[in-house]
Simulated assay, not measured.
Amino acid sequence: MAKKERAAEARASTSKPPAPAPAPGIEVQRRTVGAGRWTSRRISFYASRAFFVLIILQIPLFRVPCRAGTCTTPIQVTSSQLVSNEIFPPSIVKAMLFPGAIVGSLTKSMTFPRWNDLFDMYNLTEAKNASAVIDLQRLEILAGSYFCVAGALVGIINPGRMTLFGTLLVIWGLVKEAIFGKPVNSDPAQSVYVYPTIFIALVCAFMSITYNVKKTVRNSPSVSISKPLQSSAKSKLK
């Protein structure tokens, strides 16, 4: 009996199929959604930084008469108004002018400007004695310059529509004076001139606005479309 049982166990062990080999580990590659794509937030980030560079480095955008003589950037227009009205301390105005003064001095004469000579460089020492009629004739350019400077500074933290609004105001003031001739200026050296860089500033200001499509769709009211009920029973009244 023992031999028979051993033979039966041997046959059973040989008849069993071999155990399957363990499956190799499957590597799952996770890809970050939106990685490497130009999303609206990323475009707004770079556009606001580009607009900040245009404003703070005082890249010429236009040429208009102002209290300082001739202004070519929104910071120069804003600084002449702040100095003449004494709204902010002179140190704050010099802090806004200093980055552009460094770039201008290095590109022209390869020299470094002095802090105490900034007002002399921009003809702001006599801005208090200048007539206010020059600014009153160009209120759109003055207000737009304020918004451009403030929007460029605020846009580093939180980009918004202030830069676009200011740029459009400046462009409207330039168009009104150049096309409609208001006010009339007979001096060619004091005439209005628009640099092509103002269109770059306009594009940067427009692209710095973030637009959240998902939030707009979520907040949009739902419209229910209902079909009229069709009666299955025919009217018997004729």
Rank of each mutant, 00 (worst) to 15 (best):
M1D: 06
M1E: 06
K3N: 08
K3Y: 05
K3R: 10
R6N: 09
A7F: 00
A7I: 10
A12Y: 03
A19Y: 07
P20K: 04
P20Y: 12
P22F: 05
P24L: 00
I26H: 09
E27G: 06
E27I: 14
V28G: 02
Q29F: 06
R31N: 06
G34P: 08
W38M: 10
S40R: 00
S40H: 05
I43V: 14
Y46A: 02
R49L: 14
A50Q: 05
A50F: 02
A50S: 10
V53L: 15
I56W: 04
L57W: 08
L57V: 15
L61D: 00
F62R: 11
R63C: 10
V64R: 01
V64P: 01
C66T: 15
A68T: 15
T70A: 11
T70C: 07
T72S: 12
V77F: 07
T78P: 02
L82W: 01
L82R: 10
S84R: 09
N85P: 00
F88M: 13
F88R: 07
P90T: 15
I92N: 01
K94Y: 08
L97E: 03
A101V: 06
I102T: 03
V103D: 06
L106M: 14
L106C: 07
T107F: 10
S109V: 05
P113C: 02
N116F: 04
D117N: 14
L118A: 07
Y122A: 02
Y122S: 01
L124S: 06
A127K: 02
I134M: 08
I134A: 09
Q137E: 14
R138L: 12
E140L: 15
I141A: 03
S145N: 06
A152Y: 10
V154H: 10
I157A: 14
N158D: 13
M162F: 00
G166T: 04
G166W: 00
L169N: 07
L169S: 13
V170R: 01
W172N: 11
W172E: 11
K176A: 05
A178G: 08
F180P: 03
G181F: 04
P183F: 03
N185E: 11
P188L: 03
V192D: 03
T197L: 10
F199P: 05
A201W: 00
A201T: 12
C204P: 04
C204T: 15
F206Q: 04
N212C: 05
K215W: 01
K215F: 01
T216A: 13
R218G: 13
S222Y: 04
V223H: 00
S226K: 09
P228D: 12
L229C: 08
Q230N: 10
Q230A: 07
A233S: 11
